[in-house]
Structure formats: structure tokens, C-alpha cells
């Protein structure tokens, strides 16, 4: 269970409240206007941002004072997900040991993860030699070897074209299935939410709502969401 109890985050003039819980293995989209606080919420869960009051807990364990690397989650950012001076293989290996001290079965796990995301032949390349889609695949391969109970995505495929993006989302779904992990994904595109998240949290006006079934939400959007979606929005369109 990923639980946010009366959580409040504030930075200068910006403030956001959240109070909800997510079941293990569930897939949730955080959607809303930019600057609305979706990414801040994710950063607070990941441990990059301190909550002002309230409490974040994962699997019953309070996260106060737990460093980002110690939390039972893996995260993919918008960019800078790979160290440019390391090979794809090394970047994935970091998910197992942060000093890259890997036993032989660890090495096999890294090889396997790269093969699973379709990069078996590119293990020795550096991020600069890979396309944007391939770089995302490396980050996903690392999630596979990390095997943490939660996967956090902060608009990670925003720079990819529509086709690649769909492909990546499918791969994310496969990763979740393989590791039985729950997913929390920040996005500004309703189609992303609809394609892989069964529930959605609307983040707007300094407030995060309760998780609602994605299909129902977009079929009958509440007022703050319909403002964001605009007058031309049609579910299924």
C-alpha cells in the first residue's frame, strides 16, 4: 500500500494537499495542468521533496528520513535517466549495485533485462549512441533489475513521437506485470492514462483528488478536469 496521509507540500507561493492510498500492484495516472503540482507530488513520494506536514508511507513503513535510494520504488524522470559516460549495460547494472560490483548471476540478470527490452545487441553502447526510444528502453531495463514494488514515471516519454510512446507504454505495462509492481505515472496526456492506468488522480488548484476509475473519469469529467481537457475533448476521440 502506498499511502499519503494529509500530506501537504509547499514551496514559496505554491502549495498542494493530497490524501489518498494506492493498492499494491495498482496503476495510477496523475493528470492535470502543468504547474499544478503533479511532479512535486511524485518527487515527495520519491523522497526528493520534503513534505511540510502529513505522512507518506509505503507498505506500512513511514518514509520520513528515508533517502531516495532506500525507498522501495524505482523512478524514471523526464530526462537525464542515464549517465552519459556509462554504457547501457553499466547503467542497467547500477540498478543492482550502486558501485557496479556485480556477481556473475547479477550479470546474467542485466543481460536478460536488456534482451527483454530489445537491446541485447546494444549493451556496450553509450546513451549518446542510442536513439531516444532506445534510451527509454535502457531505463526500463534498469527498472526490471531493480525489482522494487513501486514504479514512478514522471512524464518519461514526453519527447517521443506518438507511435514510440504507445510502444513504450506497452513495455511499461509488461515491466509492471513481470515485477508485480504498482505504477504511478505523471502525464499531461489523457490518452496515456487511458492506455495503461485503471485509475486516475486529478491534480489541480493545489489539490490532489481521490483515485477514480479512468474510463469513468474521462467519460464524465468533473469541472476542473474538463477545463483542462478543453471544449473539444471527446472520450474515445
Amino acid at each position: 500500500m502506498l499511502r499519503l496521509e494529509e500530506v501537504r507540500i509547499s514551496r514559496q507561493e505554491f502549495r498542494i494537499d493530497a490524501n489518498f492510498e494506492l493498492c499494491p500492484g495498482s496503476r495510477t495516472a496523475l493528470i492535470g495542468p502543468s504547474g499544478g503540482g503533479k511532479s512535486s507530488l511524485l518527487a515527495a513520494v520519491a523522497g526528493f521533496l520534503r513534505v511540510q506536514s502529513g505522512r507518506v508511507s509505503i507498505e506500512g513503513r513511514p518514509m520520513e528520513g528515508v533517502s531516495p535510494g532506500e525507498r522501495p520504488l524505482s523512478i524514471v524522470f523526464q530526462d537525464n535517466n542515464l549517465f552519459p559516460h556509462m554504457t547501457a549495460w553499466q547503467n542497467v547494472g547500477l540498478g543492482i549495485n550502486s558501485s557496479l560490483r556485480l556477481a556473475s548471476d547479477d550479470r546474467i540478470r542485466v543481460d536478460r533485462a536488456l534482451k527483454k527490452v530489445g537491446l541485447g545487441a546494444h549493451a556496450g553502447k553509450r546513451p549518446g549512441q542510442l536513439s531516444g526510444g532506445q534510451q527509454s528502453r535502457v531505463a526500463l531495463a534498469r527498472i526490471l533489475v531493480q525489482r522494487r514494488p513501486w514504479i514512478l514515471l514522471d512524464e518519461p516519454f514526453a519527447a517521443l513521437g506518438p507511435a514510440l510512446r504507445t510502444e513504450m507504454l506497452e513495455l511499461v505495462g509488461a515491466c509492471c506485470n513481470e515485477t508485480d509492481a504498482g505504477l504511478v505515472m505523471v502525464t499531461h496526456d489523457p490518452r496515456d492514462a487511458i492506455s495503461i492506468c485503471e485509475q486516475t488522480v486529478v491534480v489541480a488548484n493545489g489539490h490532489a483528488g481521490y483515485p477514480v476509475k479512468t474510463t469513468e473519469l474521462f467519460a464524465n469529467p468533473p469541472s476542473d478536469l474538463s477545463t483542462y481537457l478543453g471544449p473539444n475533448w471527446k472520450y474515445g476521440g
Binding site: A46, S67, G69, N80, L82, F83, P84, H85, S99
Partner: peptide, 25 residues
């Protein structure tokens, strides 16, 4: 700024951070 969060999320800290992130970059 660019790689601190990534290193934090992978628990790359202390000497390993210097050896694997700071020094090469």
C-alpha cells in the same frame, strides 16, 4: 543538477558517487 536525482534514486553515494559520477563528468 542533471544527475544528482538519478544518483540519489540509485543510491550512488559517498566514494562511489565520486568515482562513478563526479570524476568522469
Amino acid at each position: 543538477a542533471n544527475f544528482g536525482p538519478l544518483a540519489d534514486s540509485l543510491n550512488v553515494t559517498g566514494v562511489a558517487r565520486f568515482r562513478m559520477l563526479v570524476f568522469p563528468r
